[in-house]
């Protein structure tokens, strides 16, 4: 089973959503999540390059068997529940999916939709899907080489 546990928190006009995707099955699972919030999705950026798992409001990634992965994003949108009561304490919801059919369960019926929903879960294919975005995100962040400091100090350039 693949479970998603979400929590969010509103801070200075921004909703910070965090989630844990847990795979309790014995095979790696390819998971697709989508933001349910009505607003732009701001994915985390590792040193100025957006996390490759995010594309628009969808997150796609492989969760290894018995492992969990953290997912998070920010958005200016306010979750369904009004900002007044969510500002003080973080809210948590839980959704889970068994097999390929998608069903979401929440701890309480009155709870609003979680900010991240499970769209699909399928067994990850043997060949890893390496996209160009992943290749680029895996490269070292670029930084000026150290010798430019001595160069700019000597004023030769």
């Amino acid at each position: 089973m693949v479970e998603v546990e979400t929590a969010y928190e509103r801070r200075t006009g921004v909703t910070l959503v965090r989630a844990t995707v847990t795979n309790t099955r014995t095979t790696p699972q390819f998971v697709r999540l989508r933001s349910t919030l009505d607003g732009p999705t701001w994915p985390p950026s590792r040193s100025r390059v957006g996390a490759p798992e995010w594309n628009g409001d969808t997150w796609e990634g492989v969760v290894e068997p018995g492992q969990c992965r953290g997912v998070g994003f920010a958005t200016p949108a306010t979750p369904a529940r009004t900002a007044a009561d969510s500002a003080s304490e973080p809210r948590s919801e839980r959704g889970s999916v068994s097999g390929s059919e998608v069903e979401s369960r929440f701890e309480s019926e009155s709870e609003p939709k979680p900010p991240l929903e499970l769209v699909t879960v399928e067994r990850a294919s043997a060949e890893s899907r390496t996209t160009t975005r992943e290749v680029l995100a895996d490269l070292d962040d670029w930084s000026p080489p150290t010798d430019v400091f001595s160069r700019s100090r000597s004023g030769s350039r």
């Binding site: 040193s47 160009t132 670029w142």
Partner: peptide, 14 residues
């Protein structure tokens, strides 16, 4: 392109 194989070169090649 600059020297090295950091992300700047990757983005430029891409």
């Amino acid at each position: 392109c600059p020297a090295g194989l950091a992300r700047d070169v990757g983005v430029q090649l891409h």
